[in-house]
Design a binder for these strands. Structure first.
Length: 661
DNA sequence: ATAGGGATATAC
DNA sequence: GTATATCCCTAT
């Protein structure tokens, strides 16, 4: 293992260089050829063993011994090709090459099927090919997206943690509490320093910050009457902050509010907070002059401490449900949600510190959110938020999309929550999700109680519910083919298949792939056997996989290119190689390669590698030559011809690795 | 990470 | 209502 890993780099480098070398010097090629040869022959580890032991190849040694590692060490397809080419050239030049590689004969045979599947060959090649580009992107869209989007969850902890944006602000908040003594508020004289400061920053004291001012004010007086002080303060603030509005405001709050054209959201929080909502007025003694105002300076007077009515709380809850916790601004922006001049900050505060009346609601909300978070981990919070808000916005795919949006042309749904790509997907996945409510299970996650509560609130369905289950997306023919290919290469390693960039199955979850394979090729899945061509064909047309297994075709005819291909891949191993079916599929997982393919019918298997590759179509004749070489040089030309014939019948379409290269 | 099995959605 | 595919959760 270790050696293998270590060696590999060398091998690669060698390979790269080889072509040159080989061209130049005949003798040199040997190492290469030998290497290639050694690699593939997993069929008979023992046989290879002789080779392995020595110099030649690291890779070879690997094969026999360690499957897993072997992969890494094994030559990649590219390498093979290169080697093949080289060799080919050499061959043409002289026959010696043949002599040199003893093992070759073996190679061809196993190369075909198995190679793809388990062998280092296949695996290695995958790795190489894949690794570069695909880098094992951990698809975890969920986690990422979730974390990103999810703003709320953890309600209290997070909230508490959040540091106040500003120092001053914090201070102001502190001031919210009614001063123990009214007198504490500093009177603000028009001419006072403070006012000056406010109005004219440039003034002497300009350097002072609001917080300082506030504290200073507070410190300052006791003597003055609260009202007065408020008034003054307000005026001062107003002057400094809202010059234009002075006229209007003087009279009363309402006028201010009603007249104020400015979008609430746009107004600085501090300012808005300062303003007194209509509802709140009732609660608070209306100061006459005071129109609330100032933001920074004055913190919020008692006026601002407006209690949250039940209605508001409910509204908040709804907003949270719709938009998600933490999206206070978004909630405020909801047209249907009216708050009494609450600011985003207010919403946040309320959420974290609900009054008694609303506690229950909050509790419910919290529960709901938590559940949603827990349950819908795969979903992005953002999605949750938006799903309901925008009626137009229908479906979205939670996770799969996030991971690899670009790859699958077929999945438009992937789109972000924002975008509305409801039906972009032919599969209609998006649509299906929305439907969920009807089925009745749509909101399994929520407890009945929660639901009831929500219902009472007028919230028919929490967005959460919708997102819960991904929309159903039937597997397409292309996907099935890719799956088969993936199976051929990776065996039961669904994750690898899923991550294999060549297969473009990233939009599916590994489990999805497994499920599909399980349903489509039950026999193969159970027995770890091969997938009969028939299965594929079936699947293309309709599925008969279930039965399909029963009718295996000895030689599936394959039409490679057409969508409906028959894959003859049966992972079977050559008879010699492996014990067959006995191996439970599990083996696949652990050592997918061998068990799977090996087990399958020998009849199918035998295809020579060359044929196989060539067959795969992608390779041009020349390429085939190369391959043949790579696969089994020795047999070389002669073999190739022989090989081709049989193979063609059996199609291993799946194995098209041209992509790999 | 994969296998097994349950739940749900969809098609017939 | 049944059959099936797909999705999902849980155990290992």
């Amino acid at each position: 293992m270790e050696s293998a890993s270590a060696l590999r780099p060398l091998d690669e480098s060698l390979l790269r260089e080889l072509p040159q070398l080989s061209l130049r010097i005949a003798p040199l090629r040997e190492p290469v050829s030998s290497r290639t040869l050694s690699v593939p022959s997993p069929l008979e580890p023992n046989a290879s063993g002789t080779r392995d032991s020595n110099n030649i190849s690291n890779s070879s040694s690997n094969n026999g011994k360690i499957p897993a590692n072997a992969k890494a060490s094994l030559p990649t397809v590219t390498e093979f090709l290169n080697a093949a080419r080289i060799r080919k050239t050499e061959l043409s030049a002289d026959s010696q090459s043949n002599v040199e590689c003893p093992p070759r004969p073996i190679l061809p045979a196993f190369v075909n099927l198995r190679a793809l599947e388990k062998f280092p060959f296949s695996s290695s090649f995958d790795d190489d090919a894949l690794q570069g580009p695909r880098k094992r992107r951990r698809r975890d869209p969920q986690a990422d997206s979730f974390s990103e989007h999810l703003q709320l969850p953890i309600p209290q902890a997070q909230k508490e943690q959040r540091p106040p944006p500003f120092g001053p602000f914090a201070i102001l908040n502190g001031l919210n509490e009614p001063p123990p003594n009214a007198a504490l508020l500093p009177p603000i004289e028009a001419g006072s320093n403070i006012s000056q400061l406010l109005t004219k920053p440039s003034g002497g004291d300009a350097g002072v910050d609001p917080g300082t001012l506030v504290s200073a004010q507070a410190a300052v007086l006791d003597s003055q009457p609260a009202e007065r002080r408020d008034t003054r303060l307000e005026e001062t603030l107003r002057t400094s902050l809202n010059v234009d509005e002075d006229d209007d405001r003087n009279d009363n709050d309402e006028s201010v509010e009603s007249t104020n054209p400015v979008d609430p959201d746009e107004i600085p929080l501090a300012v808005r907070e300062a303003e007194i909502p209509k509802s709140s007025k009732a609660l608070l003694p209306p100061p006459r002059e005071d129109v609330p105002l100032s933001p920074k300076t004055r913190g919020r007077s008692r006026k601002n401490l407006r209690k949250w009515s039940e209605e508001e709380t409910t509204t908040l809850l709804r907003g949270v449900i719709k938009c998600g916790i933490g999206n206070w601004t978004a909630i405020l922006a909801q047209p249907e949600l009216e708050f009494n001049q609450r600011t985003a900050s207010n919403l946040k505060d309320s959420a974290s510190d609900p009054n008694e009346a609303a506690k229950q609601l909050h509790a419910t909300l919290a529960n709901t959110l938590l559940k949603a978070k827990a349950e819908g981990s795969d979903e992005t919070p953002g999605k949750i938020q938006l799903s309901h808000i925008m009626p137009s916005n229908q479906g979205f795919e939670p996770k799969s999309g996030a991971g690899s949006p670009t790859r699958n042309p077929q999945n438009p749904s992937i789109s972000s929550t924002v975008s509305s790509t409801p039906d972009a997907n032919p599969g209609s996945s998006s649509i299906t999700q929305l439907q969920s409510p009807s089925s009745g299970n749509s909101t399994p996650a929520l407890s009945s109680k929660s639901r009831t509560t929500l219902a009472s609130l007028g919230i028919s369905e929490p967005h959460v519910a919708k997102t819960k289950r991904r929309s159903r997306r039937p597997f397409t023919t292309a996907e099935d083919e890719a799956l088969l290919k993936g199976y051929a290469v990776h065996g039961f390693q669904w994750t690898l298949i899923q991550q294999d960039s060549r297969l473009n199955l990233s939009h599916r979850k590994a489990t999805d792939l497994r499920d599909r394979f399980r349903t489509k090729f039950p026999h193969a899945y159970r027995d770890g056997g091969s997938v009969s061509g028939k299965a594929l064909t079936n699947q293309n047309q309709s599925q008969e996989l279930t039965t399909g297994a029963s009718t295996p075709r000895p030689h599936p005819v394959n039409t490679e290119q057409s969508p409906s291909k028959t894959y003859a891949m049966t992972p079977t191993s050559t008879p010699a190689t492996t014990p067959r079916n006995s191996v439970p599929r599990r083996s696949h997982a652990a050592t997918p390669s061998q068990s799977n393919f090996a087990q399958i019918d020998p009849a199918l298997l035998p295809p020579p590698p060359q044929g196989f590759l060539e067959h795969s179509m992608y390779l041009p004749p020349a390429a085939s030559g190369v391959l043949s070489f790579s696969l089994d040089d020795g047999s070389g030309a002669g073999a190739s011809s022989a090989v081709e014939t049989p193979w063609e019948d059996n199609t291993l379409a799946p194995m098209i690795w041209d992509e790999l290269t």
